[in-house]
Design a protein around this nucleic acid. Structure first.
Lengths: 298, 298
DNA sequence: GCCAGTTAGAAAGAAAACTTACAAATAGTC
DNA sequence: GACTATTTGTAAGTTTTCTTTCTAACTGGC
């Protein structure tokens, strides 16, 4: 489980017997179709017997062909730039025992990849444009996704005016649904088990002509019908419950994209914000609680 | 046979029945892992029965799930779908130009690894133990980290009593600092530029004998002095500002660890919670808003 | 060429993946 | 509100996939 499949196969090319070498070679050259194969179909292609396939998989550290396939699912391959030794280290520990955690890491990384892919989708650009230009932006989230919406709002507020976190404190969503005009955008964060309110809100907003962007897990079958764009964040992480953590990354990317869209003009606003925060709250390290600059990387 | 799977699924989203729609939606959202699924595993994830999967595949023109997988092989064509390849593909785009995003992915992955490493540190276990056993657990976060604290609290509340989100609405932190006894734990999420309050709160809590767990970015030089444990989440992500998104993952791991510590006894509470949410808010799909089960993976 | 040691395949058995048949549940209709 | 049609799940098959066991073939050393 510690080394990626590719490495093991390459290794086998050197040491293994004739049939095994043939297998290793074929697998290497046609990794993309591996998941579609069965032990039997592979055996036929390489012209070895079925048990040989099983044995080979076991000889390179898997439990059998099926196990190999399962591991391939999250196999990032050898991406030396990525994480290198530290990840290896962690994985070593997994092997050593009792720790199903590291398995979750792989899944969470896959989720991240999916998030970044979403940021390249065509819908992404529509959403960003709208979030940058709409007069009002509302965000909502229920239960454990409430905080996601909160984060999103707090960040976006640094960049533009008219950003609000919706909640049901007042018992209705009048702020958005009874609003004059509909030059607004709504972003909803939600995951199983979906609050009834999330769906109702989306429905009513859409009916009112307000575009809806939905950020959910892969189980939200009602989402398409009530949203303009839907971004799906994988949430299966092998823990006792599912993790929507990577939604935070998506929210962050969204905000970043809005920044790019708005251009450097927003800096002024950001500085004002930081200054205000400095004035009323103060920053650690400030001599007097009045000065403040943005929290920018550069 | 002629239309690609994606089209058929999208079509099904409109017309098909509830179970079928759920299947179509899931398949669309997570195409990458489809070849690794079996009819049974899919059925489990989407919470339908095995025959339904087979029937659905037949209803959209395949011979069964197996046939669908076979056709998928061709449909996907040159699109990369092995997670390793997808990653590589994203990287490619970076090189190609105009997109500095993907470099951020690498950094974010590194941050994730760091988070998982933290979950193996000795301090981690201390923190978890305390969060599981202390009579009260407080969490706080300022500015954009407010939402992190919110997420953490919302999740932990599912597992145990006495979990509160601190804020400065009342103008002081009396809830925790003027509390009787000190059988409590405080978790603070914070990142640059640090609110003065974060540090003050930590200082005072520590002075009052309340253990402090600090979750910060790598620049927090004052943290060690005022905390019992400090978990550092890398935040440099190459965007216009830093990303604390991976703190959400850390929070999630923490909550998961507390769950493990508490044992399966908490299920009852979780079910009660879900039930209550069902009663007052309702879940999507519930016939009547009274029934509810936890959002557990298993 | 003979003999350990290894390697590979055939056949049979076990486990899984999938299908069929039927019954229960649900939704739609009058 | 009962009746029909559709949808879905359960349980029992059937087929496929994988593993085990055992035997044959090959390898290299003498």
């Amino acid at each position: 489980m510690t080394k990626p499949l590719r490495d093991r196969l390459t290794e086998a090319l050197q040491t293994a017997s004739k049939a095994d070498r043939a297998l290793a070679n074929y697998m290497l050259s046609d990794m993309g179709t591996l998941p579609f194969e069965t032990a039997a179909s592979l055996a036929a292609k390489v012209a070895v017997s079925e048990p040989t396939v099983g044995r080979f998989c076991r000889s390179i550290g898997y439990d059998g062909f099926k196990d190999l396939k399962q591991n391939l699912k999250n196999d990032m391959g050898d991406q030396p730039w990525l994480i290198g030794d530290r990840l290896r280290d962690l994985q070593q520990r997994t092997k050593a025992g009792e720790d199903q955690l590291t398995r979750g890491l792989e899944l969470e990384m896959a989720a991240l990849v999916a998030v970044y892919e979403a940021a390249h989708s065509p819908e992404w650009h529509d959403t960003v444009k709208r979030l940058a230009t709409a007069k009002h932006v509302f965000a909502a989230g229920f239960q454990t996704e409430r905080g996601m919406a909160q984060i999103f709002v707090n960040q976006l507020q640094y960049l533009r005016e008219g950003v609000y976190l919706l909640d049901l404190a007042a018992g209705n969503f009048a702020e958005i649904l009874a609003m004059e005009g509909n030059d607004a955008a709504l972003v909803i964060f939600e995951a199983r088990r979906y609050s009834r309110h999330a769906r109702m809100l989306a429905e009513d907003a859409k009916a009112a002509g307000i575009p809806v962007t939905l950020i959910t897990d892969p189980y939200c079958d009602w989402g398409h019908a009530v949203s303009n764009e839907m971004f799906v964040v994988p949430t299966a992480v092998n823990l006792f419950w599912e993790s929507t953590a990577q939604m935070a990354s998506l929210a962050n990317l969204l905000v970043n994209a809005v920044f790019m869209e708005l251009g450097p003009g927003v800096e002024e606003r950001m500085n004002k914000f930081a200054h205000l925060h400095g004035r009323f709250t103060g920053h650690v390290g400030d001599a007097t609680p009045t000065r403040g600059e943005g929290r920018r990387t550069t």
